[in-house]
C-alpha cells in the first residue's frame, strides 16, 4: 500500500479515537447536565465521522469500492445528533435538573 495513504488512514483513526475519548471524558467529568450535553454531541460525532472516513479510505485502498452503508451512517449521525441533544435538553428542562451555580441566565418554563 502507498505509505502516504497508510499514514492518512492511521492519522484519521487516531483522530477519531481521540475525539471519541474526549467526548466520553467530557461526559464523565463535566459538572452539570447541560455542560455534559456539549461533549458527546460534538466531539463524539466528529470522532465517529473520522473513523468512518478512515474505514472508507481503507476499503477503497484495498480496491473494494465505497460501501454506501458507510455514507448513510455518517449522514444519519450528523442529522440525528442535534435532534437528540435538543430533545434531551428539553426533557432536562422539564424535570428541572440541577444547574451549576455559575450558570448565567435560566431556562424559561412553558
Amino acid at each position: 500500500m502507498n505509505p502516504v495513504v497508510e499514514y492518512l488512514i492511521a492519522g484519521l483513526l487516531l483522530t477519531g479515537g481521540a475525539f471519541t475519548l474526549i467526548g466520553a471524558i467530557g461526559l464523565a467529568r463535566m459538572p452539570d447536565f447541560y455542560t455534559r450535553l456539549h461533549a458527546p454531541t460534538k466531539a463524539t460525532t466528529v470522532g465517529v465521522g473520522a473513523i468512518i472516513i478512515a474505514s472508507v479510505a481503507y476499503a477503497s485502498s484495498q480496491g473494494a469500492g465505497i460501501d454506501t452503508a458507510e455514507v448513510l451512517i455518517t449522514v444519519f449521525l450528523f442529522m440525528t445528533a442535534p435532534v437528540s441533544a435538543n430533545i434531551m435538553a428539553k426533557s432536562a428542562m422539564h424535570l428541572d435538573v440541577k444547574r451549576m451555580p455559575e450558570t448565567r441566565g435560566k431556562p424559561w418554563d412553558q
Binding site: L27, R36, L37, T45, L95, V97
Partner: peptide, 15 residues
C-alpha cells in the same frame, strides 16, 4: 438524574 442516563446511553450507542 434520568436525563444523564439517557445521554450516557446515547453516547454509548455511538461508541
Amino acid at each position: 438524574d434520568a436525563p444523564d442516563r439517557v445521554l450516557a446511553l446515547d453516547t454509548l450507542y455511538v461508541n
